[in-house]
Design a protein around this nucleic acid. Structure first.
Lengths: 158, 158
DNA sequence: TCCTAATATTTAGTATACTAATTATTATAT
DNA sequence: ATATAATAATTAGTATACTAAATATTAGGA
């Protein structure tokens, strides 16, 4: 018999795996993985968005976003234009192909999950989201409660 | 303002990221990543366990387990011995070093998370686990309810 | 001015993690 | 008995995803 915290870990692993599988399914069906689609959506909503902004928005490191953008740029879905006023910054824009892909792309999470989620009562949805947010907060090393002392690394990182 | 299903995805991403960061922290501190530690624990509990059994237990593909075992074997934490009665099967065993590592290893999830989780009321823990299990089930393509027709790929896969 | 710190992105290197295909073995059915 | 199917593990190839270090630029202070 597993302990509760072990059951929790197992459930999380299943969720993580399901998200990964959805990503590969997307890749086969529309040629975009989950993270690529999320980046495409972000750029679609905010043309010229910075790499760092994308990274913060979807909770990835800048290095990862750079990596994914490399692939997307090679496939002509987005283009990077370095800012002229602050040459450190790089703006990301959709190409025609990118706009086309975005307009026909499905949701990052499986449709059947999203449908079921939307079919739930409002309070139930809220409760589910709240539980996940609570877990995320409990796991967040930056917000260990009753701990006024933060390491330098923590402050820099986030 | 984000929609509820988008909030849910963001929260999941944060959790996934926190688990990954814990894994890298473990790697620096004790030289074992999260998945490596989980495999070590499984082998510790069940000497000679098959690769497939490990994969099913912690929700990974066999290929991934093989990959991780390669690294662990190279570092002399485990050894693989092919079964003599069924030569397709490979049993995994702890080495002395592996036993040593396991005996001093910390938990796969951050201690401060586990502590906080254990400090919660019993019913609250159960509710949290149940919510995660429900999400996992909702995401599981194998268990789309009201759908008696399963694709061949699904049956074979799991 | 000029040095240092901060910011933004990229590169290098490593570890997951998957699917599809391959190899080897064992089980089954004709 | 032998061809076929199923099972087990591995290999090949690709995509995340991270940290640390490198590069370039901008901002601030002495």
């Amino acid at each position: 018999m597993l302990k509760k915290d072990e059951e929790l870990l197992v459930a999380l692993r299943k969720i993580i795996r399901a998200i990964g599988m959805r990503s590969r399914q997307l890749s086969k069906e529309v040629g975009l993985t989950g993270p690529q689609l999320m980046i495409l959506q972000k750029v679609g909503k905010q043309a010229g968005v910075m790499v760092r902004e994308i990274a913060e928005d979807i909770n990835l490191s800048s290095a990862t976003v750079t990596n994914i953008l490399d692939r997307m740029e090679a496939r002509n879905l987005v283009e990077r234009i370095r800012s002229t006023e602050d040459k450190r910054k790089v703006g990301v824009f959709l190409t025609k192909d990118g706009e086309q892909s975005l307009s026909t792309a499905p949701l990052p999470l499986q449709e059947h999950f999203t449908n079921r989620f939307k079919a739930m009562e409002e309070w139930e949805q809220s409760q589910m989201v709240a539980t996940l947010q609570r877990i995320a907060l409990m796991m967040d090393a930056q917000h260990v409660d009753a701990s006024p002392i933060l390491e330098v690394g923590n402050i820099i990182e986030k």
